[in-house]
Amino acid sequence: MPAIQPPTPKPATFDDAAIERLEMLLIQQALPAGGLPLEAVHGLFSAAIVGPGETVMPGELLPYVWGQDHEWESVEAAQDALDLLMGLWNDIARRVVNDPETERDVAVPLVALPTDIDESDPDSWNDDHDFPVGAAWAVGFMIAFGLREDEWEARIAQNEQISEDINDIFALLPEPEEDDEHTHADSLDAAATVQLAPDDEPEDPDSVDEALFDAADAEPLTFRERMEIVGELPYILHDLNLQRLHEATPRTPARREETPGRNELCPCGSGKKFKRCHGAPTLH
């Protein structure tokens, strides 16, 4: 009888090969159906993982990822795609807990960069460069933001630093075209369109539109400014995750020990009224 081989364990991390597979799958399956490119999916999942309120689960995000009308050819293909997405989700969730100040394995966003710059050399960040670094990532982030908008707004109102961080992410959003009617579609580039799934729109779509396009009223970011914000995203995600953990930690309000009334007998057995015994200020 042949020996039974144990199943091959799945890799603990979402490696480069898995990233490439997911990226190609999204190009082939999601973009033609109105779904998202990999960069936007990373922003979408990041916001869902570190966001406030009830967690936005991956299943709620699938219509945004693949497009509302997308259909799989087989159960096996759908499961393979789901496994890849969950690999990305778990990788982000694992990395956001690490402090960028002390750890190297942090939640670096998957953003496209132009080929003619050196990411590690700020001197190569030409301010005349018009490549919209981080735009697709910010669109994905803001889709998830819109799904828990009230909770995000409450968090922002209570924390000035979070407000500044979210404003920076908004600033990365792509500028709308001149003929854009500010619907729930936004051009990321010549080949891809991001569209919110019609059946899953938040209750107040106008407020989401306002959030998505407020950045258009501000002065456009320079390429250097975009690169600097993208470089801050691991810190922002880590801080937002800390805030999420703080909000999720149950806190029992401090309760005073029950004490007898001032005119009741002191429980020590002295026969005196409490105010004349252990309740007297001079005894405390």
Rank of each mutant, 00 (worst) to 15 (best):
L233G: 03
I19C: 06
Q5V: 14
P114I: 07
E219L: 14
L212Q: 15
D206Q: 13
A77N: 06
L172S: 02
E258H: 11
E103K: 00
W72S: 07
L233N: 01
A197E: 05
P281A: 11
I143T: 13
L31H: 02
I169Y: 01
N90F: 09
I236G: 01
A144D: 06
E39W: 01
L283W: 01
A171L: 06
E247V: 02
R255V: 15
I19F: 02
E177D: 15
G51C: 04
P63K: 06
Q29S: 14
E71Y: 04
T8G: 00
G134N: 06
V139H: 05
H42D: 15
A40I: 03
D179R: 06
A78L: 07
E73P: 00
E149S: 13
A17K: 07
E203R: 13
V133D: 08
V97Q: 05
R262D: 02
W152H: 04
G269I: 12
A254S: 11
E232Q: 10
D214S: 15
A135V: 07
E60H: 10
P100T: 00
D127N: 15
N241M: 10
D179V: 06
L233I: 15
L25V: 03
A48E: 01
S163T: 07
A218Y: 13
N167R: 12
G43R: 05
I162C: 04
Q5I: 14
P122Q: 09
D186G: 10
I4W: 03
S46T: 14
D209C: 11
E247N: 09
T282L: 07
I156D: 01
W137L: 12
G279L: 04
A190N: 11
P114L: 08
H284Q: 09
V41C: 06
A47I: 03
H42K: 03
E71T: 15
I156S: 02
W137H: 08
I162M: 11
L283E: 13
D165A: 07
M24P: 00
Q68G: 07
M86L: 15
S120V: 06
L38D: 02
E210R: 11
G134D: 04
Q158S: 12
M24Q: 14
